[in-house]
Write a protein that binds this DNA or RNA. Structure first.
Lengths: 211, 211
DNA sequence: GTCTATATGAAGATAGAC
DNA sequence: GTCTATCTTCATATAGAC
């Protein structure tokens, strides 16, 4: 049971192939039950292949887990499209960013991935780093770049785009993520999300006024 | 392996007794290695008792885990003392609250408890609720009550103390908790904590001005 | 209550045929 | 590459003596 190097990761298998089936089954089971409570027998059964096939493609349970997380990180990174915010007024752009961010953050899939990554980071040292780079860092950089461009155009006043991004996201998230990850909030309705986003945007614009 | 009811929890065992030794060993091992990767053999060995003794006092691994978390929740609740903030200016009071909160939140012990609670909440439904009540909810209520009193005295302007508390803590935490829990930040020095707190307090006071 | 020794079962991993 | 059948290890839990 050696520590797995997440740096050496296979490329994405062809859709519909047996490795892809295994990966899909691994994703479903690991995200639902965690690493330790998922058995290779179950993954093989759900994937509809034999256990030996699983081991033929992924050498061990750890490697399969690492491949599953890597695939998910790729998906997260690809799902964050650089859309066109430039045409919008600042308030509308921030609102759009906020809604998209909060919806993504609180979705069941994101919660499940977060949970399993947090749980297994001590055993897989690279896991946290890769997850952060693919998800949160990606998002933060994108928002910070937008704010910087807006500041350059004189649409908003701010000194430090990265710090302003942190404040914005901090106000946006508040304690919601914590309550959600502890299983205390069923979900957020669209109107609740709107309300939370509007408040965070309003506070942000007080701190960073538009001229 | 039935779901354990965390509501029926034994009282605190006498210090130095064998149950207390077992509980201490369980705490050390569960927080370091998580639930699944900790064996009852190890706990018995660390506690310096036989495995049968462990089972005599705590009927199963799940019950032992539940008792360990319950003990920790008690400790968290007790560690949050209602100190006297009333004499201080608002800025100084918020700064003190912020420093205390951030130091507590980012400490290795808090991180370890958070990690194991997040990981095991799906298997132990009551776990998240009890942890939240003993820790975060406790803290938030305390801060909200202070803000309300300050508002009543006319020291600060705010409509909704609970919401203001969420904003304050959101700005204070920002992405630091996430990076810490993913193993990306070694720790925060005292000066970094001071800087973060000062910035959050400054932003808060812009949003909620003192007359 | 506490111990030593052991039963029982689950799960990671592999051998060998096709 | 894929399967069936099996090996091996290890962890939970208990029996029975003191």
């Amino acid at each position: 049971m050696e520590t797995v190097l997440l740096d050496s990761v296979m490329e994405e298998p062809a859709a519909g192939s047996k490795p892809a089936q295994v990966l899909a089954a691994a994703r479903a089971e690991f995200l639902r039950h965690g690493f330790a409570n998922t058995s290779m027998d179950t993954i093989a059964r759900v994937a509809g292949v034999s256990k030996a096939t699983v081991y033929a493609h992924f050498g061990s349970k750890e490697e399969l887990f690492a491949a599953m997380v890597a695939t998910n990180c790729r998906r997260i990174a690809e799902s964050l499209k650089e859309e066109t915010l430039e045409g919008l007024p600042v308030r509308a752009a921030l609102t759009q960013i906020g809604r998209q961010f909060l919806t993504f953050l609180l979705s069941p899939d994101t919660q499940a991935i977060y949970r399993v990554v947090v749980a297994e980071t001590p055993r897989f040292p690279d896991l946290g780093r890769r997850f952060y780079a693919a998800g949160p860092q990606n998002t933060r950089g994108r928002i910070a770049r937008y704010l910087e461009r807006a500041a350059d155009r004189g649409l908003i006043r701010l000194d430090d785009p990265a710090r302003a991004t942190e404040m914005f996201l901090g106000m946006l998230i508040g304690p919601r993520h914590l309550k959600r990850v502890l299983g205390l909030e069923p979900a957020m309705s669209d109107t609740e999300i709107s309300s939370a986003v509007d408040h965070a945007v309003a506070c942000f614009l007080v701190l960073h006024p538009t001229p």
